[in-house]
């Protein structure tokens, strides 16, 4: 037995609604076309030619840029740094932000001050953060080395941004400092929607703090947790500004990530096409992760586990 659903809306109204719908989405579509589709098509075109930034008729080189990319050891090195950034740069702000949010959750006095204090770094311009932390890390006059010397840890002093072994982690620490405030504020908002009666009940049942966090709080804030994870994780793929400001990818490429390598290839050695190809790789890697996490977040929200 089959059945068909027939709309009772008159055809004239349906056409009018369609036109209205198109009119309403048109501005967004124009924006998407201008700022996403066209640049993406342009990038794909440039990845198939050999463009040096000057020659108006670049030679078509087929897949040469892609072949070069996958055989370029610096790509794998930069991807490795991206991986470190993604793992630590995602996990650390989430962990620190969550702990701080839990600590501030029930703080009544000075709550606003703490929120402001922790959130302030997030709204500072990246260039200011990079410059100030560059001073802090300075090997001769930097506060960090001076502080270490003053507490008897002078043997730990080093040129933080100039040593290949410490440079990436020094920049990463700055990025974590800058982004933790954002995570904290989001988590604090999510915690407001957590059912405290369940927590009280679990406490009566003898659940300890870790068990309450794992079984009661985290499931309730999971969609928000995933949303924050998505933002920080995708940021890990496309990280550029803070590394560019603080080390420029150096010393000797030690802090190169895909973003800085793409920029340096395009604008330092005028190999625009190769730089564009590298940038496309960043997109190709980050978009599936973002989509995956987004779907997971949506599914959890639909399951009603969300805060």
């Amino acid at each position: 037995m089959s059945s068909t659903i027939t709309s009772t809306t008159p055809a004239v109204t349906r056409r009018a609604q369609t036109r209205l719908g198109i009119a309403l989405i048109a501005p967004l579509m124009i924006l998407v076309t201008l700022f996403f589709v066209l640049p993406m098509c342009s990038a794909i075109y440039y990845s198939f030619v050999d463009f040096d930034g000057i020659n108006p008729n670049p030679e078509f080189v087929g897949l040469d840029n892609y072949t070069r990319m996958f055989t370029d050891p610096e790509v794998w090195h930069a991807l490795g740094n991206n991986a470190i950034w993604i793992v630590l740069g995602t996990a650390a702000p989430l962990a620190i932000g969550l702990v701080l949010a839990l600590l501030l959750w029930n703080v009544k006095r000075g709550n606003m001050f703490y929120r402001l204090a922790f959130f302030l770094p997030y709204v500072l311009p990246g260039i200011a953060i990079g410059i100030v932390w560059g001073w802090i890390y300075d090997p001769v006059n930097g506060w960090l080395n001076k502080a270490l010397q003053s507490i008897g840890l002078g043997h730990l002093t080093t040129g933080w941004l100039g040593e290949p072994n410490t440079a990436l982690y020094a920049v990463l620490a700055t990025a974590i400092w800058a982004s933790t405030g954002f995570v904290l504020i989001i988590f604090l908002s999510a915690l407001r929607n957590v059912d405290t009666e369940q927590i009280d009940a679990s406490r009566l049942d003898g659940a300890n703090a870790a068990q309450r966090l794992w079984h009661i709080i985290l499931p309730q804030i999971m969609p928000v947790f995933l949303m924050v994870t998505t933002i920080t994780l995708v940021g890990g793929f496309s990280v550029f500004d803070i590394i560019f400001i603080m080390t420029g990818g150096g010393p000797a490429n030690a802090t190169n990530v895909m973003g800085t390598y793409a920029y340096n290839s395009a604008f330092k050695v005028s190999d625009i096409s190769y730089g564009t190809t590298l940038a496309l790789l960043i997109t190709a890697l980050s978009v599936p992760c973002a989509v995956l996490l987004n779907r997971l977040q949506r599914r959890l929200s639909l399951q009603g586990t969300g805060a």
Binding site: G134, Y137, D138, P139, V140, G159, L161, E163
Partner: peptide, 15 residues
């Protein structure tokens, strides 16, 4: 300068 690769041109001159 200790760790020259950590020292900016301006900071080197300032020293």
């Amino acid at each position: 300068t200790p760790t020259p690769t950590a020292v900016s041109y301006d900071n080197g001159n300032a020293l």
